[in-house]
Simulated scan of single mutants.
Amino acid sequence: MEFDRNRYFMIGMLLFMLGIQFRMVESFVLNETSTRALAKFAQDTQIAAQDLGTNIYLAAHPSPKKSVEPPHWFGWALLTAGGVISLHALALPKQNS
């Protein structure tokens, strides 16, 4: 698949909009399934354990939820990359049909 002008522009706009989202949001709260998957990936045995004691404890108490705070610069990086890619798409020659 060849990347033409439209695909570059679409990728640039998606990155730009993701950058806007990351600039407007302070933090993300993951649900229980995502928190467990992240804990297994990070090798955190306290939350990732699936033994009987953990299951009984989680049945009686609220489920663990992880809050993710993206770095401040990440939104700016996505905005910049999206803008550069979108402008590059406008500089590319039009596709011959």
Rank of each mutant, 00 (worst) to 15 (best):
W76P: 01
S86N: 04
Q43A: 12
A60C: 06
Q46Y: 15
A48G: 03
A77S: 10
G53W: 11
P71Q: 10
V68L: 15
H72D: 07
A59T: 14
T54N: 12
L87S: 09
A60R: 12
L79V: 07
A81Y: 05
I85C: 03
S67M: 12
A77Y: 03
Q43N: 14
G82F: 02
T45C: 03
P62M: 13
V84G: 01
G53P: 05
G83F: 09
D51C: 07
E69D: 07
S63D: 14
A49S: 15
P62S: 15
D44K: 04
W73N: 07
L79W: 09
L52D: 12
P71D: 11
I85H: 02
Q43I: 05
L52Y: 12
W73P: 02
L78K: 05
V84Q: 03
W76I: 02
Q43W: 07
E69L: 06
W76R: 03
P64R: 07
W73H: 11
L58I: 08
L87Q: 07
Q43G: 08
A42T: 10
D44Q: 08
I56A: 05
A81W: 05
V84S: 03
P64I: 03
G82R: 00
Q43H: 12
V84T: 04
N55I: 10
L78C: 12
T80C: 08
D44F: 09
T54V: 13
A81Q: 04
W76V: 02
H61D: 09
G75L: 00
T80V: 06
Y57S: 11
W76F: 11
V68G: 04
G83N: 05
L79M: 14
V84W: 06
P64F: 08
A59M: 13
A77V: 02
P70A: 00
F74D: 01
V68D: 04
L79E: 10
L52R: 12
T54R: 15
Q46H: 13
A60K: 11
A48P: 01
V68S: 04
A42K: 11
G75Y: 01
G53T: 07
S67A: 11
I47T: 15
I85L: 14
F74N: 01
G53D: 12
A48Q: 02
Q46D: 14
Q46V: 15
G83C: 06
K66R: 15
A48D: 00
K66P: 03
L58W: 14
P64A: 05
G83L: 10
G83W: 04
